[in-house]
Design a protein around this nucleic acid. Structure first.
Lengths: 315, 315
DNA sequence: TTGTAGGCGTTATCAG
DNA sequence: CTGATAACGCCTACAA
C-alpha cells in the first residue's frame, strides 16, 4: 500500500519512506503492472482505433492526431486494421472490447448498422468517423459529403465540363453512398444529365481507380466524359494514370477531382484538385469526444466541411 | 471454472453444460476479460510498436505488415508515435512495459545505446528495426545502408555526376550515420572529392528537405552540385521542389536520389529514383521474430538489401 | 503515517 | 465431469 501511495502520489507518506521506496523502485527496476491496475480501477487508459487500412494515407494523420491527444492525457492507443473486411472489423471490435479499452474510434466502418450498433454497445464509449448510425450509442464525426460532392461537381460544371463520371467508393462505405447522392443531386440541380454508365464503385486505392478509368476510356466511341469525381485521392491518381495510358490528357481532355488532400495530391503531376479534410484535427477531436463521453457528457455530432483545393488536374 | 473450460475449449465438459454455458454467454453478452486473463497467464497477446511518426509513409506499411502477422496469430498491436523525440520514445517504451506487452518492435529509435539497452531489458522480447545495439537484448532488422549509399552514389557517378551533395537524416538516427559513412566511402573509393559544405543533416520530411536544398541552391556562385543523395523520399521531394523554385531543373541540372520507395515516389513529377525497401515484409518478419524469441529462440539479425529503382529524377 | 482485509476476473491445481 | 481454493498485482476502505 505504501508503495502504491508513493507511485501514485496519493495519501500521506513520510519523506523518509518515500525515499526508501523510490530507491527500491530504482534498484529493482520496478514497473507498476497496468493490467492489475486496470483490473481494480475498471479502466485501462487505452483507446482503440479501427481503420480500414493504415497504408491509405488518409488514416495515418487521423491516427496521429488521436495518438497525440491520447498521449497528452496519459492514454495508450491500440490500433486495428480492418483491411476493408467486415469479418475482421467485427473481430477487431470484439477483441478491443475484450481488452476493455475505455473507448473506440471506428473510422469508415463497413459493417451494417444493426451489427455496428451491437458491437459498439459493448464499449463504454464510441466515436464513429465518417458514419452515422441511427440509434447507435456513439458520437459521429462526419465529413460533409453532400457539400463535398456539390463543390466538386459545381467546380467542374463551372468550368464547362458537363459529361461527368463518378468514381464512387466501396459499395459498403457510407461516405461513398452520401457522395453519390450529392453527386446526383448537384447534377440534377444544375439540370445536367447523368450517364449511368459513368457511375461506378471501386475500392479506395490506386489500382481500382486505374482499372475503372481504363474501362471508361476503352469504351467504344472515344471518351464520353470530360470530368471525373473520384472517391479519394488514391483512386483519382489511378484514374489519371489510366487516362494518360489511354492517350487522354489531364486536364485538357478530362478533368479529375479527388478527395482527402493527402500529401501526394500536391506532389504529383498534374497536381490534384481535391477536397481537403482536416484529418489531424479530426483525430484529436475523436479522442476528446471519448473523454467527454467518459465524463458522462454526450457531445453533439460534428460535421467537418471539406474545402475545395484547386490544382492542375481540374483548374 | 466450467465457463473457462468452455470458452477456452480445454478440459472435458459434458455436451449439456457446454450448451447451457454457451447460451448464457449469448444471453448476457459476456466478453472474457483479457486483463484478468493476462494477469494470471503472464502474457498479454499484445505487441507494442514504436515508430518515429506514423504520418511518414515509410512506417504505415511496416505497421500493416506487423499487424497482419500479429492478427493471424491472435495478437493485438499497441501503437506509439515517438514524434522523433527522445523523451517520448523513452516514455512510450516504459509505458508499453507497464502494459506488459509480450514484445516490442522499435522502428528507427533515436535513443542512445545504453538507454535503449536498459529500456529493452524491461521487455520479454524486442526487435529493433534500422538499428543495431551491441549487447542489447534484441534482434535487429537492418537495411543495408552502406550498400544503399553505394548504389546511389555509384549510379550518380556512373551518369557523370561528380559534385554530389548528401541530404543526411536526423543526426541521432543510426541509419543516417551509416548512410553518411557509405556515402563518404563510395566517394572515396571512386576517388571523387567531397565538398564538406554539401553534407548536411535534416529531419526526414519534405519541409526540411526543401530548406536544406534551398540553402545550397542560394549559395553564391550558382549550383556547386549536380546530384543529391537524400535520406528518404520525403526529403528528396522537398529538395526537388526547392530546386525547381530556385530555377534549377531536375534531373538536367541536378539529379536526385531518394530512399524508401514510398508510393509517392512513383507518382510525382519527376518521378523519384530511389532505393526500394520491402517494408511490409519487414513488418511481418519483425513480428515473427518476436514469436521466435517467445519460444526461447534467438533468431539471427537480418539485413534487407535495398534495390535501386531508376526513375526520372536521376535517370 | 503505515498496514490489513478484500476484491477486480481469470486460470492452475487439486478435490469430489 | 464439475467445483472449490488460491493466486496474479493492484487499489479501496478501513484499522492501528
Amino acid at each position: 500500500m505504501t508503495v502504491s501511495r508513493v507511485v501514485n502520489g496519493t495519501g500521506r507518506v513520510s519523506e523518509a519512506t518515500r525515499q526508501r521506496v523510490r530507491k527500491a523502485i530504482d534498484d529493482l527496476g520496478y514497473q507498476p503492472n497496468q493490467l492489475a491496475r486496470s483490473l481494480t480501477q475498471g479502466r485501462t487508459r487505452t483507446i482503440g482505433i479501427v481503420v480500414p487500412d493504415i497504408t491509405n494515407p488518409f488514416f495515418p494523420e487521423i491516427v496521429r492526431g488521436a495518438e497525440d491527444a491520447a498521449w497528452a492525457a496519459g492514454y495508450t492507443v491500440a490500433l486495428a486494421n480492418a483491411v476493408e473486411d467486415q469479418a475482421r472489423e467485427r473481430a477487431a471490435l470484439r477483441n478491443l472490447a475484450g481488452h476493455r479499452v475505455d473507448g473506440v474510434i471506428v473510422c469508415s466502418p463497413r459493417l451494417p448498422d444493426h451489427e455496428l450498433t451491437d458491437l459498439l454497445a459493448a464499449h463504454p464509449a464510441a466515436v464513429l468517423v465518417n458514419r452515422k448510425v441511427h440509434g447507435a450509442p456513439a458520437v459521429s464525426l462526419m465529413v460533409d459529403d453532400l457539400l463535398g460532392a456539390h463543390l466538386a461537381v459545381g467546380h467542374l460544371l463551372g468550368r464547362g465540363r458537363t459529361r461527368l463520371a463518378l468514381l464512387g467508393g466501396p459499395d459498403r462505405s457510407a461516405s461513398a453512398k452520401y457522395r453519390r447522392e450529392g453527386f446526383l443531386a448537384a447534377m440534377r440541380e444544375a439540370g445536367v444529365g447523368v450517364n449511368e454508365a459513368l457511375l461506378t464503385h471501386c475500392e479506395p486505392n490506386e489500382e481500382a481507380g486505374y482499372e475503372a478509368a481504363t474501362r471508361w476510356a476503352q469504351a467504344k466511341g472515344g471518351a464520353p466524359f470530360d470530368g471525373i469525381v473520384a472517391y479519394n485521392d488514391l483512386a483519382a491518381l489511378g484514374a489519371v494514370r489510366a487516362l494518360n495510358a489511354a492517350g487522354l490528357r489531364v486536364p485538357e481532355d478530362v478533368a479529375v477531382v479527388g478527395c482527402d488532400d493527402i500529401r501526394m495530391a500536391s506532389a504529383v503531376a498534374p497536381s490534384l484538385t481535391t477536397l481537403r479534410i482536416e484529418k489531424y484535427g479530426l483525430g484529436r477531436l475523436a479522442v476528446e469526444m471519448i473523454f467527454a463521453l467518459q465524463r458522462g457528457r454526450k457531445p453533439a455530432d460534428k460535421t467537418f466541411a471539406p474545402e475545395l483545393i484547386v490544382r492542375e488536374s481540374a483548374p
